[in-house]
Design a protein around this nucleic acid. Structure first.
Lengths: 341, 341
DNA sequence: TTGAAAGCGGTACCAG
DNA sequence: CTGGTACCGCTTTCAA
């Protein structure tokens, strides 16, 4: 009849240690000065019983959960999993639990998730990218959740932002194109919905004029459709363009807003008989792992995903300890020169 | 002084509805026959107050949480995020919350995570791959958690398994190599720690003899080192081999246990001046998205990640509703013929 | 059909 | 330093 190996509770520990549950709680949390003897006794019992505090009870009472909600656009572009990967490792190390949600680039779904999250146990919510979700963010704030916006700029008060500097490296990129003799530079991009993409577009225009190139609306290519699959989209999009415009009427170099987009684009280019970087040079953003394993190896503007993950966690940690942190954290980008330009 | 927009509780709803909290609970959960009038009144108040039940309190009391722990090797190989992606979407749809953990191919860490999980609020734990963790699984079972093993076979009782049929497609793959005239087939693999890899190795040997090839221990290449980065590992590993053995002493075709491994391998091959599929044919496993965008496009054995994610969720759903489900679910693999062989 | 009350397993406050 | 105890917000008997 001793089959029911149910969970050990603090009460059992208290009884076996001949103290009250309050005391046990104190030795566990260090919330009161307990004598060395009692401390040792209690700890011994904890060991013996293999007692682990019930997180649910703990957070019900303390209103703190060490749980963070992590909201990503999706998990297919390896950019996000890389950030997440680093983050969850730090989190585990420090006993934070991370709940994961994907909003699939949909505002509606993003809002739904936020609504959901506002009634749930997390006390910090991280949103990567996202837009048009201010109502949701305010809701979260009302419920006393902390919110962190990543890879995104915002002026909302009460939220922390962490994002890449989208202006510096693109200047180097355009300068590189110039030095390689490319005549005209186009911009091939995902829809300009997220602030990071908007910034890149602005940075692109600035770099163009800084390097003496003219900006032509005609050479901006916004690759529509779902953002779910940049790889496939980039491929179809460029294939389409090549059906309609020949090389003469196209830029001979492109800044692409993501590596995946670039890889898709390059495949389309090659299938139409063009060489990269011979006929067209391409520099993209991200530096995901595969970038150095495709042909040609991508020249790309790195946004260090590991750094982002780590910084994000530091932020979470600081916030949950009520430490003072800067509202805005800016991470550098870095031009990685390989073969595509 | 009405600033503290704190969360609405069931007590407030009860007071405003002039009933007791028990009654409110019953109308929310349908756990007792409440009169239409009272039901309507309570629901109206719930609307007005925008009341959302506190999940923490609810699960403390009911010992059910609709939370599932999802344990993956890591998030860098896009195989896992793809499964996860599908899973979290289904989960969200049905109001399940998923906590994510990465064990980074380390048994120790896997055990740590499990230990952690056993004291936490999840009631179902999904483990993808993993090994040597039977103690952890039993611990989970002791704590009355359900456990699901994915992409892995096990005979442990009380756990559900869902995995791919690792025997059929590889036979087709080897037959294809035969028909293309490849003379000798090697096996380039990650360490044989996981059951899926072991099965592939067995399937490989069976396929070899079925197609009239001889098996040579010498042509089995186990790519050691960390499994974290198959791409980089495959590259270094094959580079090394090519330093020591020339084409004559090597198989002219390879079965690789993952696409990433194959992509790394192919780069090494090409850097040494070899053509794929001219000099060497390669067929790998997974069919991750990038597989059709690298050069050459990979001929690969698809393991449908979306299907795995979906099936996994169905399993979770069935288990959490105490429905009867088969202990073992087998998913088919499928040979996708492209250019690498 | 509804009310009353006992906890779930902890934390935190107050006494002594 | 340690004990006692009132909750956290909800579910779940048990009575009425």
């Amino acid at each position: 009849m001793k089959k029911k190996s149910n969970r050990v509770t603090i009460t059992q520990v208290a009884e076996k240690s001949k103290v009250t549950i309050g005391t046990v709680s104190h030795v566990i949390n260090g919330t009161a000065p307990i004598s060395p003897e009692v401390t040792a006794r209690v700890q011994k019992v904890i060991e013996e019983l293999n007692y682990i505090p019930n997180m649910t009870a703990r957070s019900l009472r303390s209103k703190k959960s060490k749980q963070v909600g992590f909201l990503v656009p999706n998990l297919n572009n390896s950019f996000y999993p890389r950030i997440l990967s680093t983050f969850i490792n730090h989190a585990f190390e420090h006993e934070f639990i991370v709940q994961i949600f994907g909003y699939e680039y949909s505002v509606e779904k993003e809002l739904q998730v936020m609504n959901n999250l506002s009634s749930n146990s997390v006390d910090i919510v991280i949103i990567i990218n996202g837009m048009g979700d201010e109502a949701g963010i305010n809701r979260l704030l009302d419920m006393h959740k902390k919110v962190i916006l990543a890879d995104r700029f915002s002026d909302m008060k009460g939220v922390n932002c962490i994002f890449f500097d989208n202006n510096q490296a693109i200047l180097e990129a355009v300068a590189l194109m110039k030095s390689k003799g490319y005549r005209k530079i186009g911009f091939i991009s995902e829809p300009l919905t997220f602030t990071n993409i908007q910034e890149r577009f602005a940075g692109f225009q600035a770099a163009l004029s800084a390097c003496g190139y003219a900006f032509a609306e005609d050479d901006v290519f916004i690759c529509g459709g779902f953002q779910l699959d940049a790889l496939v989209n980039g491929y179809h999009y460029m294939s389409n363009i090549l059906e309609k415009r020949d090389k003469k009427h196209l830029p001979d170099a492109f800044i692409a807003t993501s590596d995946l987009l670039a890889i898709g684009t390059i495949r389309a280019l090659r299938e139409h008989g063009y060489q990269v970087p011979g006929d067209f040079g391409i520099i993209s953003f991200d530096n995901i792992e595969i970038s150095s394993f495709v042909n040609p190896r991508l020249t790309t503007i790195e946004q260090n995903q590991t750094d982002m993950g780590t910084e994000l966690f530091h932020l979470v940690q600081a916030i949950s300890e009520n430490k003072n942190v800067s509202d805005k954290i800016i991470l550098p980008q870095k031009l990685i020169i390989r073969d595509s330009c």
